[in-house]
Design a protein around this nucleic acid. Structure first.
Length: 859
RNA sequence: GGGCGGCUAGCUCAGCUGGGAGAGCGCCAGCUUGACAUGCUGGAGGUCGGGGGUUCGAAACCCUCGCCGCCCACCA
């Protein structure tokens, strides 16, 4: 034992000020290397690669919530004795970042085309630096215990090499091919995008009914919302079952304005109920039409430029923007009397989820990745339980999507991103290589031109869990930390990201990249709208941090992260946790300020004491510890924060500290021991969720102390089990609450009065109850006072009687008793309910009868 | 057109395998109680969306209807 040290003096102000301590602790943690993972450690490893935020701007509240979840797990696992790797990074987010910078350029009155590639790249670099720094700073403010020595960026040179390696590996397997297909074309970005990058918006449009003449007489009327695409029509289709059109199948229609001959074909894909049941087929600009065209060998005409304007040489519409052409074409058709009808029509139109331009489906030559084998392996990994989903339902959603998976368009026609490592020589040979090749693989040409396309951002981020660890090199990190353990995201990127990580992880590493996938809730604005900067509904996490502190924000985040529905942001709940931190602060202040020479004790020291309240609070502490551990283990963080809050405030502060105040004042070492033990353990238990305040307070407790995160996790299971103490202290609480009720009803002052309790409660219970209820425990009080219901006894105050309350209480008890007896009198209940349930109810009825008797007898 | 989730106190949400309806904030009343007024004490407030069903017993399980939200889908 260390020498005695006085702990009466403290320098703690009355109120907890998060700002005063947070930065200091973070710097110390980092300086002392608490976040740095050791790949050579003997401890069991636990790894998480933080989902790299897009380097498009500042972090929002959703990121803060996600960070809180991750960091809670990371700190908990460190305390449990794992060698934890919590790896940070960010994502270049090619298309998104390009759009951000293009918007900036537009504001400055210029464009990327005007400034050129080189200047554009410089802007990008500058942006990376600035925004990367902002993101890192925000993560630090949140207390994220990330290993900054391993910070990764999807565009850093090592990561670039991983991406190239993956491409070449896929290419060599024959899974990557180039082919023209119908794709989603963004005319603003002038790039293809995948199905997953489309956002659908409702549009009010017009459905035009257009008459197409048929060779040899007659006509057929089709319906379309996009008349401008008719310039690229190459057929007309009807349903084979459709009796109305049986006679025209096989004939040829003539395309108005153009004069092209259109074979009339029969295809099951045509809906008879829609429009007229006849469909104009435009294989070059509609996905369904493309398929029909393939089936019937229809001609493929491209009617649009990469910027969305019309490509119709020889026609007056050539070069017109799409909507302008639509108007002109409708006008021309009207003149010819070919517009039969116009109807208002509401439907969903695809937009680019980054620049919001309307997507034009068109046929384009693209890089494709075959997915069959990876998909099958991912499905197999699921059925053999390699990845556990929380909540489970998301696994089905993911599997449903996997089952319908088709080849992935991995090419993008952007300025920003990982260039496809495909090189062509003047002789037309193709060389595919991780590093830029010196010369052609097939001839001696050295002037090689690299393919202009870049890769889909998700191609690179899909490699995250192993590319960050050094793959394709067999690094120590990869050896020690792959597969990782937990991944946590919002559900919106399950398909885009989670699925790709699982597939590529299985492909390149032979193992799923993590064992648990946790899907957290989405934070909405207070009014239920989406939180977004452009709507003005966003909340900056830094504002909340400065108002309430990181611990409060994190505690709130853990309390809502696993909600089954999206959560409306409620600032008052964050404020509630700030008050909680303040409560912890003041509870500690109370105990630290207790007088007396106290032996500086080792953390975790406890000598079992015999006071009822000591036994009770230790039993409750063990109970809370179990709930908190379970909550984190099972990814039900609300259980953890709720249990910690309830124990700290409603048991420790409300009852225990009140019960031992006089003992603390007297310098009773037993009371101090137990109080310190509770605080010590409580701060450890809350540390994963509220790291700053717990570190600060824990460090102020007596004894030599390092950091909470290195102090181990409280293992209290099986310790302090004490049903008798819980039962007896429960009596104390009931008596005190009843006395307080009478006091209020009587309008008596907060203190004073007397209580008499007969032998049905122990002296200990009687003494504690009297102390906490601020009444004198007396032997005898004659006929004065009012009878108690919970135990046999009477209480009296200097003023008032409290009879009103007694009547009310009697009515309540009476009603309760009647309900209980009714249930008990049901023979079916006695027959069929478990004996324990019946016994409990009988005991309750007995209690109620006794309580009523006491009230009545005492009149 | 399919699928999923939600509907619990004025607001935001807990309530995990069916056995006495909870928290925070807000509201009312009272307290400068030797840690905390960022506090303490007492209190009001709920047909657990509606209706059926299963069960001795349903907020919880089943069916159905109604709103709200999300996802998927090749009706042009």
């Amino acid at each position: 034992m260390d020498e005695a040290r006085p702990i009466t003096a403290t320098d703690m102000p009355k109120a907890f000020d998060p700002q005063a301590i947070e930065a200091g602790w973070y710097a110390r943690w980092e300086q002392d290397g608490l976040f740095v993972a050791d790949a050579t450690s003997d401890k069991p490893s636990f790894a998480m690669c933080f989902p790299p935020p897009n380097i498009t701007g500042e972090l929002h509240l959703g990121h803060a919530l996600q960070t809180a979840v991750y960091d809670t797990i990371a700190r908990y696992k460190r305390m449990k004795g794992f060698e934890v790797l919590f790896l940070p990074g960010y994502d270049h987010a090619a298309i998104a970042t390009q759009n951000v910078i293009e918007k900036q350029l537009a504001k400055e009155g210029t464009s990327k085309e005007q400034i050129g590639r080189e200047a554009f790249n410089a802007r990008v670099e500058q942006w990376y630096e600035q925004t990367g720094a902002t993101i890192i700073n925000q993560l630090r403010l949140l207390g994220a215990s990330m290993d900054w020595t391993r910070l990764r960026f999807t565009m850093d040179s090592r990561y670039y090499r991983s991406v190239m390696t993956a491409f070449v590996a896929f290419y060599e397997k024959g899974w990557i091919y180039r082919a023209p297909r119908i794709v989603n074309w963004c005319p603003h970005d002038r790039s293809a995008i995948s199905d997953l990058e489309i956002e659908w918006q409702e549009h009010q449009d017009t459905l035009y009914f257009i008459k197409y003449p048929i060779e040899g007489g007659g006509d057929v009327t089709i319906a379309t919302v996009r008349p401008e695409t008719m310039l690229a029509d190459t057929g007309v289709a009807v349903n084979p079952q459709d009796k109305r059109y049986k006679s025209i199948v096989g004939k040829t229609a003539v395309l108005p304005l153009v004069g092209r001959k259109l074979p009339i074909v029969a295809d099951d894909a045509v809906e008879m109920e829609f429009g007229t049941g006849a469909l104009k087929v435009t294989p070059g600009h509609d996905a369904l039409d493309y398929e029909i065209g393939q089936r019937h060998s229809l001609e493929l005409v491209n009617g649009m430029q990469v910027d969305g304007s019309m490509d119709a040489p020889g026609l007056p519409y050539d070069g017109m923007p799409g909507l302008e052409a639509r108007a002109a074409i409708v006008e021309a058709l009207k003149k010819q009397g070919l517009i039969v009808k116009e109807e208002p029509y509401t439907h969903e139109v695809g937009h680019c989820d980054r620049c919001h331009a309307v997507i034009e489906p068109l046929v384009s030559e693209q890089w494709w990745l075959r997915m069959e084998e990876m998909r099958d392996n991912a499905v197999e990994a699921s059925s053999s339980g390699k990845v556990r989903w929380h909540p489970e339902k998301y696994e089905r959603e993911y599997l449903d999507w996997l089952h319908g998976l088709h080849d992935w368009n991995i090419g993008r026609q952007l300025w920003l991103g990982h260039r496809v490592p495909v090189y062509r020589c003047p002789n037309g040979h193709v060389t595919v290589s991780v590093e830029r090749p010196e010369q052609c693989a097939e001839c001696d040409q050295t002037e090689l031109e690299q393919d202009p396309d870049v890769l889909d951002t998700w191609f690179s981020s899909g490699l995250w869990p192993f590319a960050t660890l050094g793959w394709p090199d067999q690094t120590e990190d990869l050896e020690a930390f792959y597969p990782t353990d937990v991944n946590c995201t919002a559900r919106e990127i399950i398909r885009l990201w989670v699925s790709r990580m699982i597939m590529t992880g299985l492909e390149f590493m032979g193992e799923a990249p993590f064992s648990d996938e946790v899907i957290h809730s989405v934070v909405q604005a207070a009014d239920g709208r989406r939180m977004s900067k452009s709507l003005g509904t966003g909340v900056d996490p830094r504002d909340l941090l400065s108002k309430y502190g990181a611990d409060a924000l994190r505690a709130w985040a853990t309390s809502v992260a696993m909600s089954t529905q999206d959560v409306r942001f409620d600032e008052s709940r964050v404020e509630g946790y700030r008050r909680f931190a303040n409560k912890l602060w003041n509870a500690t202040r109370l105990v630290l300020n207790s007088p007396g020479e106290q032996t500086a004790q080792a953390p975790g020291f406890i000598e079992r004491q015999e006071h009822l309240e000591d036994r009770w609070i230790l039993a409750r502490l063990a109970n809370a510890a179990e709930a908190i551990s379970n909550g984190i283990e099972q990814f039900e963080f609300q259980e953890s924060i709720n249990a910690g809050y309830a124990f700290a405030w409603n048991e420790l502060c409300d009852w225990y500290l009140e019960a031992i105040k006089d003992r603390l004042r007297d310098g009773d070492p037993a009371a101090q021991d137990v109080a310190y033990f509770c605080l010590d353990n409580l701060f450890q238990l809350l540390h994963p969720m509220m790291p700053f305040v717990t570190e600060e307070l824990w460090s102020r407790l007596p004894g030599e102390r390092g950091y909470v995160m290195q102090s181990g996790w409280p293992e209290l299971e099986g310790r302090f089990v004490d049903p008798d103490a819980e039962e007896e202290f429960g009596q104390v609480i009931k008596i005190v609450e009843e006395v307080r009720g009478h006091r209020t009803a009587a309008g008596a002052p907060p203190r004073g009065g007397s209580i008499v309790l007969d032998g049905s409660v122990s002296e200990t219970v009687a003494g504690l109850a009297a102390k906490l209820a601020h009444v004198d425990l007396v032997e005898e009080m004659g006929s004065g006072g009012v009878p108690l219901a919970v135990v046999s006894g009477r209480v009296a105050f200097p003023t008032g009687t409290g009879d009103a309350r007694r009547d009310k209480e009697r009515k309540r008890l009476q009603a309760d008793l009647e309900r209980t007896e009714e249930r008990l009198s049901n023979p079916d209940f006695r027959d069929k309910a478990p004996a324990e349930v019946v016994a409990n109810l009988e005991a309750r009825a007995e209690e109620l009868r006794e309580a009523l008797e006491r009230l009545t007898a005492g009149q």
